[in-house]
């Protein structure tokens, strides 16, 4: 395990040399945008005429805008299902894919494919699966003698998009966990086997504790992705004029900025989203100190 190693001498030079492009990008790209967003969140700006001072009006609106409040609720519900779903399922898939199975690379590729396929194309396929009268899923249900379900109607759409988003994220999660799993020394398992631990015990007493750094990282990444989820949701639930039956916060930010000439309001919403994610990150790092095991 290399977590504790510090770079020495020439390594230090290369460390900074390789990080420089990222830092330049962050400082001149991200940092500038972040500052501009903060400044604009205190302004009335329609993009076309000079911005005027708005004070806290955009922030007060965060609590009054019905469309935004609905989007926030949706984002939180979505994240609450998506994050555990991605972490648990991709960990299980990674454990399966970490065995010596014939054609394991074929399976790994299959699980990773959604990550490299256009979200628009895969969402179209999911539309064919979820369709009420013409979908494959309902066709199967009816064959089994069950009532067809309107998967993308408002009451079910949230679950439907969570499933698609989890499905799309398993591949990336699997890669993270596979990296963590291969780093666990085989001897631990061999020793456990000799002591008579079954697979279940091995998983919870060896795999899970030793893979907590990967679980932590994957939870963090999934949370950020959950709060920014957009493409599958847009493709599966879009309505006219950029609306969705499950509008998440990104819908609100995008529409306010680009459709409603309300850049100030959109900036305040973006800040709100950032603050929520940052608060969650702080909570995660607190958990990390308590529970994550770095060997």
């Amino acid at each position: 395990m290399e977590y504790g190693l510090r770079p020495l001498g020439r390594e230090k030079f290369w460390l900074f040399a390789l990080l420089t492009p990222t830092f330049i990008g962050l400082i001149f790209g991200a940092l500038g945008s972040v500052l501009a967003t903060v400044a604009l969140s205190f302004a009335n700006w329609d993009l076309l005429t000079p911005p005027t001072w708005a004070g806290l009006a955009n922030y007060v609106n965060l609590f009054k805008d019905a469309k935004l409040l609905l989007s926030l609720t949706n984002t939180i519900k979505f994240s609450a299902m998506y994050v555990p779903g991605v972490v648990i399922i991709s960990l299980l898939v990674a454990v399966l894919m970490n065995r010596k199975i014939r054609g394991v690379s074929l399976f790994r590729t299959a699980y990773f494919l959604p990550a490299v396929t256009s979200a628009v194309a895969t969402a179209l396929v999911w539309n064919m699966i979820y369709g009420k009268d013409t979908g494959i899923l309902n066709f199967i249900l009816e064959r089994l003698g069950m009532q067809p379900v309107c998967w993308l109607c408002t009451e079910n759409a949230m679950y439907a998009v969570v499933i698609v988003n989890i499905w799309g994220a398993i591949g990336e999660g699997m890669i993270i966990f596979l990296a963590g799993l291969t780093a666990i020394p085989r001897e631990y398992y061999e020793a456990a086997e000799m002591d008579g631990a079954n697979g279940f015990h091995q998983f919870f007493n060896i795999t899970v504790p030793l893979i907590t750094p990967s679980i932590f990282f994957q939870t963090l990444i999934s949370t950020i992705n959950a709060f920014q989820a957009y493409d599958y949701i847009y493709m599966l639930t879009r309505r006219g004029q950029g609306d969705s039956s499950v509008p998440v916060v990104v819908f609100s930010i995008y529409r306010n900025a680009w459709n409603f000439f309300n850049y100030g309001g959109a900036s305040a919403q973006a800040i709100e989203l950032t603050v929520i994610v940052a608060a969650l990150m702080a909570f995660y790092f607190w958990l990390e100190r308590r529970y994550v095991v770095y060997e």
Partner: peptide, 19 residues
């Protein structure tokens, strides 16, 4: 694509800001 839109909004803020 997931982050692309978000980055686009942010990036355009910057672009528009210094335009």
């Amino acid at each position: 694509m997931k982050r692309f839109l978000f980055i686009l909004v942010i990036a355009s803020l910057l672009l528009a800001g210094c335009g």
